Simulated scan of single mutants.
Amino acid sequence: MKYNLKKMMALDLYLTTLNQDNSDTIAGLVEGTTNFVMPLMSWDFHSKNFNRQLQVAQREQDILKVVHLGQKYNWKNDVQSIFKQNEFEALLLTDHEQRIVWVSDGFTAMTGYFKKEVLHKTPRILQGADTSVKSKKRIREKLSTDMSFSEIITNYKKDGSPYKCEVKIFPLKTDETTHYLALERQVV
């Protein structure tokens, strides 16, 4: 198959001028429709779309993992609705004593800590000098109410760099609270 280099370059230039909505629309039309060795689209455009699809797939896998754990532990919570109503970059699951039992790959991407490094530790591993004493106190008080809540806290990555994190914590219950699910995302 012969490619028209001028048309490919024009398409490449055109794709770089699109806003996100138009880019998403075009991606849906172009994605998977070519049988060429080299698709007729910008490699940047293709890479960005591929990475976005990868993130969506990873998010779905994380949700399925928590749903599976919910079935295993017989939680009465509607776990699916938690995810439908909240954004997150990272997930952290602790037991009732707040020891970490599972984290998502997004947690590793956000903090730099691998799963094996944080298992059986508490989320306090993420706190440091600039973590507000008031925030920590509010979190402890809210945990004791067994109600969902949100807090913004300064946490620290494995390399020691601080970041602001919005944490939404959901008690997961059978007849009583057995675990806590934290949905986390970095904020400015």
Score class of each variant (00 low, 15 high):
1 M>Y: 05
1 M>G: 15
3 Y>D: 06
7 K>H: 09
9 M>C: 04
16 T>Y: 03
16 T>V: 03
17 T>E: 09
17 T>F: 05
17 T>R: 09
18 L>W: 04
19 N>T: 11
20 Q>W: 00
21 D>N: 07
22 N>Y: 01
23 S>I: 06
24 D>H: 11
25 T>A: 11
25 T>Y: 07
28 G>C: 01
30 V>W: 00
31 E>V: 03
33 T>D: 04
34 T>G: 13
34 T>W: 12
35 N>F: 13
36 F>W: 08
36 F>T: 08
39 P>Y: 08
40 L>I: 01
41 M>H: 05
45 F>A: 09
51 N>L: 15
55 Q>K: 14
57 A>Q: 12
62 D>A: 02
65 K>T: 10
67 V>M: 13
68 H>W: 05
69 L>W: 03
72 K>R: 13
73 Y>M: 01
74 N>I: 01
74 N>A: 10
76 K>N: 01
76 K>S: 02
79 V>M: 01
83 F>L: 06
84 K>P: 00
84 K>Q: 12
86 N>Q: 14
86 N>W: 12
87 E>N: 14
88 F>Q: 04
90 A>Q: 08
92 L>E: 06
95 D>G: 09
95 D>I: 02
96 H>V: 14
98 Q>K: 14
98 Q>A: 07
98 Q>H: 07
100 I>P: 11
101 V>E: 15
102 W>M: 10
102 W>D: 01
102 W>N: 09
103 V>P: 05
105 D>V: 12
106 G>W: 08
106 G>V: 11
109 A>Q: 14
109 A>T: 11
112 G>T: 13
113 Y>D: 07
114 F>R: 15
114 F>W: 11
116 K>L: 06
116 K>D: 15
117 E>W: 07
119 L>N: 06
120 H>Q: 15
121 K>A: 07
122 T>P: 01
125 I>S: 06
125 I>D: 05
126 L>E: 09
129 A>M: 10
129 A>I: 14
129 A>S: 13
131 T>W: 07
131 T>K: 07
132 S>T: 07
133 V>F: 12
133 V>H: 06
134 K>S: 14
135 S>P: 11
135 S>A: 15
140 R>P: 03
140 R>Q: 14
143 L>A: 02
145 T>L: 09
146 D>E: 11
149 F>N: 05
150 S>A: 12
152 I>F: 00
153 I>K: 05
155 N>C: 15
159 D>H: 08
159 D>Y: 05
160 G>A: 10
160 G>N: 13
161 S>N: 11
163 Y>V: 12
164 K>P: 02
165 C>G: 00
165 C>M: 15
166 E>M: 15
166 E>A: 10
172 L>H: 02
172 L>R: 00
172 L>P: 02
174 T>C: 03
174 T>I: 00
178 T>V: 00
181 L>A: 04
181 L>W: 00
184 E>H: 02
185 R>Y: 15
187 V>R: 09
